[in-house]
Simulated scan of single mutants.
Amino acid sequence: MGTPQTEPIVTARGLRKRFGTTQALDGLDLSIPAGTVYGLLGPNGAGKSTAVRVLATLTRPDEGSAVVAGHDVVRHADEVRRKIGLAGQHAALDQELTGRENLRIFGKLFHLSGRQARARADELLERFDLADAGDRQVKTYSGGMRRRLDLISSLIISPTVLFLDEPTTGLDPRSRTEIWETVRRLVADGTTVLLTTQYLDEADQLADNIAVIDHGKVIAEGSPAELKSRIGGRIDVVVGPETDLGKAAVELAAVTGTEPDTDPDERRLSAPTGDEAVSLAAVLRRMDQAGVDVEDIGKRTPTLDEVFLELTRKPAKEVRR
Rank of each mutant, 00 (worst) to 15 (best):
L125G: 08
L269S: 00
L186T: 10
E226N: 06
G298W: 07
A56I: 06
G99C: 02
E295M: 13
R127S: 11
T301C: 06
L245V: 05
P61V: 09
A203F: 08
E318Y: 02
R146Q: 15
A12F: 03
I297S: 06
G233F: 06
V255G: 04
G64R: 09
A133V: 04
T21N: 10
S158N: 14
V68H: 04
V183R: 06
T177E: 06
G240K: 01
E79Y: 02
D288P: 00
E318A: 12
G88Q: 04
A117W: 08
L151A: 14
H111Y: 12
D288Q: 14
W180P: 00
G2K: 12
V278H: 03
P315H: 12
T258E: 13
T197C: 03
V161P: 07
A271H: 02
T57Q: 11
G222A: 05
L252I: 00
E63Q: 15
R321V: 10
T191K: 03
S270V: 07
A77V: 03
G14W: 08
F110K: 13
L252V: 02
P8W: 08
D150H: 02
V67G: 07
V255M: 04
A34W: 01
T301W: 00
R267C: 08
D265H: 09
G45A: 02
K317H: 15
N102H: 08
L25R: 05
R75W: 07
K17H: 04
V283Y: 05
R176F: 01
G27M: 04
A46E: 01
R120E: 14
D72C: 12
V292F: 07
E7Q: 14
R234V: 03
P159F: 02
T59F: 10
R146V: 11
R174W: 06
L93S: 06
D201Y: 05
I235W: 00
L25C: 14
L15K: 00
L58S: 07
L194S: 04
P8K: 09
T6L: 01
